[in-house]
């Protein structure tokens, strides 16, 4: 296996599988939106969006097979965004 080789190429089959699962997740999120789940609706919608973006980032954007520094980049910017959200909501909730 050349899993650590940065030049590893992903086959057409993998891409098509990922695309199919993205479509399945889309149909799930549309179906779930029609059901009234109260305050869980938003949570489930965001969870599915997170899973979908995980698939896109890891496979379509081949981060899974890229060098670790790229993962650090994404984690850092994601963390920054997370902190900004947390701080803002602290302000909103306890003003």
């Amino acid at each position: 296996m050349e899993a650590n080789n940065k030049e590893q190429h992903i086959g057409y089959g993998t891409y098509i599988l990922v695309w199919l699962s993205l479509l399945v997740f889309t149909s799930i999120t549309v179906t779930v939106a029609g059901v009234n789940l109260g305050r869980y609706t938003l949570f489930i919608a965001l969870l599915i969006a997170a899973i979908k973006s995980g698939l896109v980032i890891n496979i379509f954007m081949h981060i899974k097979f890229d060098e670790p520094i790229f993962k650090v980049f994404i984690a850092l910017s994601g963390f920054t965004l997370f902190i900004v959200f947390i701080l803002t909501f602290f302000d909103i909730l306890y003003r």
Binding site: T29, A33, A45, L46, I48, A49, K52, S53, V56, I57, F60
Partner: peptide, 10 residues
């Protein structure tokens, strides 16, 4: 595509 994945449900 990624940005749309979040815009769509929201």
């Amino acid at each position: 595509d990624l940005i749309w994945i979040f815009l769509f449900p929201l």
